[in-house]
Design a protein around this nucleic acid. Sequence first.
DNA 1: ACCTGAACACCGTTCAAGT
DNA 2: ACCTGAACACCGTTCAAGT
Lengths: 210, 210
Amino acid sequence: MTRARAARPAKKRPDRYHHGDLRRALLQEAVRTIAKHGVDGLTLRTVGSSLGVSRTALYRHFADKAALLAAVAADGFRTLRVDLEEAWQRGGRGRAGFEAMGLAYVRFALAHPSHYRVMFGADIPGADNPELTQEGAGAFQVLVYAVVALQQLKLARQDEPRQMALFIWATVHGVAMLALDGRLGPEPAVVNRLIEYTIDRLRTGIAPGR
Amino acid sequence: MTRARAARPAKKRPDRYHHGDLRRALLQEAVRTIAKHGVDGLTLRTVGSSLGVSRTALYRHFADKAALLAAVAADGFRTLRVDLEEAWQRGGRGRAGFEAMGLAYVRFALAHPSHYRVMFGADIPGADNPELTQEGAGAFQVLVYAVVALQQLKLARQDEPRQMALFIWATVHGVAMLALDGRLGPEPAVVNRLIEYTIDRLRTGIAPGR
DNA sequence: ACCTGAACACCGTTCAAGT
DNA sequence: ACCTGAACACCGTTCAAGT
């Protein structure tokens, strides 16, 4: 052990959580815990002991538990943005790409239900957390760009893009939340049918004319 | 004081919480507490002492705190259903009534944000609570009826009514949640504009043709 | 039947102290 | 600078005991 460490070149690899790496480790462990045990399963004690660290060590890196959750939420928005960008581009940045984005959005929520709930939870100080605000805006911006592209392709009305994007966001968010809360019943087919139907109603809803 | 009580006829008015009235009092107090201090402000201790009762007295009437919250949620769905019915009828059971319903839905959420959150919260055993399931279904049924009426008026596509109602529900629910979570910023004008825009996009989204 | 009071096993957070 | 350990003020829930 000591020999191995001596033999290794000084590559700044942190074996102990020091010099700022504990923050990343805490965030990573929090994400894992939430995925496995839900938000209520996340306690400062468990996340601390999982990293072999005191339960109060967290306070060096986060103001409080809410700040940790805000960081978790920001991380979620980052992942969501990447997912949306991929779907949009792979779909060809047109109508197919737009539909793929809608599907990707709801799938993200269903794949990471607890994480998604933290992102939109009430217990998070959304307004006064710059990182969370920024990451949330970043994910939203992907949708705005897509809307503008659809408008240029004459597939969407010439309304204010941000307004239209907000409407679309609210709709897919609503579908995701109803599904997550089990409000659509236990059948996955019901959820899938609603997603498909919703995307088609979005298409006719934002189409030019009328 | 004592005189007044003696003079009053025996009208079965409960001065002490006994014989099943404590349940109603607990529910009522829980709703009031949540409205004033949010869900986190609701503790069995405070709601108990507000009624001059031990903090464990609740367990005679509810299985646990989650069951109390489920009752709160069911109560909310009952109020929401009444609000929706009123809006639909006063609007003339047509296009105006439908738009009034959409507005009434989001307004309910904004008027009772904490209560609304409990209705859709994750901490509630939605599936295994018959009363909550029934009240939720009742509110949804109002929307389904309205959709059928719109279809008969040729104002909506001839799709499966429940499917269309689910889509509409998801959309207004999404708008409500984004507004409640402060995701639309502090300006009420932004919220109002989104509500208006959303209702108009719902109109073109569910319109016949295309 | 209905409620109480003590006890239990938790929780987030503070703070003086260690290195 | 970073982390610890004890302490504090909470919390939901259980349970024997009272009436």
